[in-house]
Amino acid sequence: MAVRLALLGMGAVGRGIIQTVAEKDLGLVITAVADSRSGCIDPDGIDLKNLLDRKEKTGICGDVNISAETIARTAPYDILVEMTPTDAKNGEPATSYIRDALIRGCHVVTSNKGPVALHYHELSSLAKENNVHFRFEATVAGAIPILQTLMYNLGGNDILSLYGVLNGTCNYILTRMAEEGLTYKQALDEARTLGYAEADPTYDVKGIDAAIKLVILANTVWKKNICLDDVDVTGIDLLTEEALRLAEQQDATIRLIGEIIPGQNIYRLCPRIVPKDHPLVVQGSLNAIIVRTDLAGDLLFVGKGAGSKETASAVIGDILSIRDMDAGGN
């Protein structure tokens, strides 16, 4: 029997999921969808081509009387796929939708950093109590399956430290400043033009986005209980092109690096001088993570940290792994 999905959020990631479910035979059916203003429900499965056309033509996906809340609470589904925009301060309304689904005994997959960074321990206990899964691979480093790898595949290892390039926008800006000698402002404007940076880039360039990912990693992989204020955060917005040139003189460059050393309670995000041949010096909007473990040694992960298809890859990976675990009698 096909696994029934309810999707909340029809931004780039939501559309990426719908397209993938429509194109690939994954054994998935979408029974409910909500965007910020409307919703639609069909217990037999929504016609996805019609759905995408409707959204493009009218700007809404369905009936304005059907809300995301209604869908989370009452629509027929097995897995709630929550992809609404991140609210870093209180994680709402996403956290409420997730709670509603878990209490109903439905699994939840989210790409939303707010609820995981702020309420991971509560939501994970709630999932356990209701004998369902709560997954959030897409919240850190996009397409790179870092959370599953660290939480499960490296089980038995002590993960001693983690260093990572976790924000593609900042990495793009720093790459361009180093390569082309652009000023910070020029590189930022270029990133905006190419769609790598938001109109308001504060969240990225001040390091908040990457710092939230450190909070998620700390709380989920190491079961810490930290919040954004516990991370020592410095962004890239005050960097000068001269600083990049000074780094260049020593065959190095500058990258925004997140650092977790759980044994010393170090949670830090700041620009660092990194030798050019260091594995964390990746180009453009890529992400990269290095972890040091006691059994597996050092491991390096590189990949796309954002993008609709890449993020959809992480979300669908979570969905299919839940389905397969359930089939295994979990």
């Binding site: 260093y163 960097l239 620009p271 660092r272």
Partner: peptide, 9 residues
């Protein structure tokens, strides 16, 4: 000041 430290790994 903005201090940029080296990454030691």
């Amino acid at each position: 000041f903005l201090l940029i430290e080296p990454l030691e790994f």
